[in-house]
Every structure is written in structure tokens, then in C-alpha cells.
Design a protein around this nucleic acid. Structure first.
Lengths: 226, 226
DNA sequence: ATGTCCATTAGACAAGTGGGTAATATTATT
DNA sequence: AATAATATTACCCACTTGTCTAATGGACAT
């Protein structure tokens, strides 16, 4: 059963300047038991405040906002470092806007004429980490990806990163490592001895199959495990 | 759920070498009234023949096929120019594999441990043109998108590297640094002494306003200067 | 020619790093 | 109750890193 029945509902914040659209979104989403719109904002500044206060699971962000636009807002939002997923919502289908959204923190890109039920599905998907892109702009987004030599990509040697998962603690250490902290600083942060920090770093390196912390940091950033 | 009322079902072809997985996929999908698995293949060559014959709406393509691999198969498939949507299916989460799939014609990337009901949803989504990417690899895919910060869409990030520009040589060193090389290795690569390499690294750190090479590497990756 | 910037080299030094090995406590799992 | 995994600490050792001062030659501009 994937029905999220008795779990706590997905909390959502809507940032959208048109009142009518805002009401529409709220109604469409609140019609679902597993989704709960906890707040709404009509501009980015207000939105960011609400996001900071509520730390929602999912943020519906209109791109065409007055004042600070949606993309700037998403950047600031990501800087706050909650784990909120962002759905970019717009009526345009400009290529740069799509790419800019997705590289600025959005996990999904929806056009406003999306079916309300479908939108609820997207909210659920995005909440689990899925990347979802509207049909109208999907192809152009895929075309923007850097081309890689297709042949030889599959040595099928299953290993790379996923094989040995990091423990929670190691993951915590990794985050500090990526932010450029030394072992001593990491130790201080986690309130453990330097020896412990070193031990964690050491096993992180081995599990990630890299030789030093720089490689670990780069790999972590590139693969989005931060 | 969105019940696709009495329209003709979505036709699907499965290309997968493991018989058991194949059966599992077929059962999981055929359990849905609006989805109809019309054919199955256990290798790419056979798969392409079936695809040509049936012109399915959606193709489930395993990447780790014997002989011609799934990515090659997708390229050939796209060359046939039917409008079939492709879902890449694999158990790996290697970054290059994901990108290669999506640039070779796939509209979706699923790991094999996906929930069967979810897979049916993905089939429906993809059939409408959506791009859908598994949570495990979503972030790394988004990170692979080209950064576009010179367009008016994005906030003016002059702080990034604009303060003090790196020289060509330093840039060269930075690239090696990001790839995880030690000063000794960088020196060997550039055919200079270790002292030189260290000197370059030192000025890179100062120009990038960071304290150590890890921070430099992370910043370089995040801001797309590599 | 003079000054400035860059690339190169060098020696020295304090601090940090990564690899060993090994021990103990806590926590799940069986 | 026994086992396994994880977190924690410690010590030692070779090596790396980042900063410092200092020197040399090339390029480019005023």
C-alpha cells in the first residue's frame, strides 16, 4: 500500500501573486487528505518569511512575482537549507526560465494549466524527491543536458557510490566536510574528539571510493548528496 | 487517482533480459486497465524489431542488456522516429548513465526498486510527455544542467568569482584541484615543481576567498567554473 | 627604463591529513 | 544471551598543505 493514509500530511506553502490562482491552488490541494496548505504569500519576501517559519515539505513558487522574482526567491530559499522541495509554477514556457528554475533549486516545473488532480500527484512525487517536468517543456530541458559519449557508458560494474551506504553520522560529517571544515572543526561541531572525526572521514573516503576529502566533497556536491 | 475513462489503453513494450523482472513488470502494468503490455523482448535487437512492429506508446528499456546495451538501443529507437516515449530502467545510479539515458531519448529514469503502482503512474505521466526522474538520481541530474547566470532571469551573482579573476594558469590548476589531485600530482601534470603548484593553489585560495582546497573545489563545482 | 603583473623556483615551518592498529561503549538484531 | 554494527577514543607515523620570505626572468604598458 502506498496510500499515505495515516501519516502526517504533506505541508505546502503557496507563493503566487494572483489571488484567484492562489485560491484555486489552495482548494485543489486541500481537497486531498494527504496534502495540507499551511500558508500562502503573494510576494517573494512574504513567502520567504512564511517558509522560514513553517519549514514546509513542498513549496509552490510562481515565477512571475512582483519585486523579487521566483528564481531569486528559490535561491534564497535553498540558502536557508531546510529540506523543502520546490515546484516552479508559471504560465510561460521559455527555455531559459525552465533551466534557471531547475538549477536554482526547483525539483519540478509545472505550467499553470495543469490538471488540479495532476498537481496533487506532482506534490506527492516531488515530496519524495522526484524530478518532474511538464510535457510542454520536458523535451527542451532534456536537450539542455550535456551530451555524453553514449558508448562505453555501461561497464555494468555495479559499484561507484551507492553500493556502500553512509551511516547517518558519517553523512553528518560529510556535510561539514563539504562545507570546508577541517577535522578539528568537525569534531568541535559534533562535540566529539578529533580522533572520532578522523575515523568517520576515513570510512567515508573508503565507502565513497575516493582517495581524499577533496574528491569526496566534489563527488558529494556533483551527485547532490548534500 | 486520475481514472483515464474508456480511452484506448497505453501500449507498452518491455525490453529486459531477466525473465523474472520481465514477468514482474508485465504483471504490475497489466494490472492496470489503462495500460496494456503488447510485447516483451529479452535483448535490444529483438526489442527494436518489436518496437518497429508495434509502435508502442511507451517503452520500458533496461539499460544493462547483453549485446547492444539499452542506451544504444534508445538511440536507434529514436532514429526510427515513432513517437514512443522511453522509460530507462536500471538498478544503478551512476551519474553518467542517467545523463546518457536522458540525452539518448529517455523521458524518464527509474530505479528497479520502484513501487509497481508508482511505475504505472510513471507510464501514464511519460505517455503525456512528462519527464520523470527517480528521487535517488534527481538531484545529480539537475546539477548536470548547464548554469546560466548571464541571463536576466537569474539574480545577479557578481559575488561568485567576479571579485578577482583567476589567471589562465591558476584556472588550469583549479581544474586539477577539483579532480582531486594533490599538489605533487598537479605539479607533475603541469611539469613544474611542487613549489609552483603550491604557489598557484595559494593564490587561488586567496582570490576565491576560501580557506582551503576543499572549499575551493566545492565552490568551483557549485558555481560551474569547471 | 620603470613599474607591475605573472610564472617559476626554493627553504622552512606549523598545522592538518590519512593510514595503520586497537580498545571500549552503545545499540540493534537474532 | 550472543552477535554484529556503529560510535567513540587513543596513539603513532609518513606525508601533505598552506603560508611565509625571497629570488629570477618574461611580458606589457606608460
Amino acid at each position: 500500500m502506498i496510500t499515505e493514509t495515516k501519516l502526517k500530511p504533506i505541508s505546502v506553502i503557496i507563493v503566487e501573486d494572483f489571488k484567484l490562482t492562489r485560491v484555486g491552488l489552495r482548494c485543489a490541494l486541500n481537497a486531498n487528505e494527504d496534502i495540507n496548505v499551511v500558508a500562502e504569500a503573494e510576494d517573494a519576501v512574504e513567502g520567504l518569511k512564511l517558509i522560514e517559519r513553517h519549514k514546509p515539505d513542498v513549496i509552490l513558487m510562481d515565477l512571475g512575482l512582483p519585486g523579487m522574482n521566483g528564481i531569486e526567491a528559490m535561491v534564497k530559499c535553498k540558502e536557508m537549507n531546510f529540506n523543502s522541495k520546490i515546484i516552479a509554477l508559471t504560465s510561460h514556457d521559455r527555455s531559459e526560465e525552465v533551466i534557471a528554475s531547475l538549477t536554482s533549486g526547483a525539483s519540478a516545473y509545472c505550467l499553470k494549466d495543469i490538471d488540479p488532480n495532476k498537481l496533487a500527484d506532482v506534490v506527492r512525487d516531488v515530496n519524495t524527491g522526484v524530478c518532474w517536468i511538464d510535457p510542454v517543456v520536458a523535451q527542451m530541458t532534456l536537450n539542455a543536458l550535456p551530451k555524453i559519449d553514449n558508448i562505453g557508458v555501461l561497464p555494468d560494474k555495479s559499484h561507484s557510490n551507492g553500493c556502500v551506504p553512509l551511516t547517518e553520522r558519517e553523512f553528518e560529517v560529510l556535510k561539514h566536510l563539504v562545507s570546508g571544515k577541517s577535522n578539528t572543526e568537525i569534531a568541535k561541531e559534533l562535540i566529539v574528539s578529533v580522533h572520532t572525526a578522523k575515523a568517520h572521514v576515513c570510512s567515508i573516503l573508503q565507502k565513497m571510493c575516493v582517495n581524499d576529502r577533496v574528491q569526496a566533497a566534489v563527488k558529494a556536491v556533483k551527485e547532490g548528496m548534500v
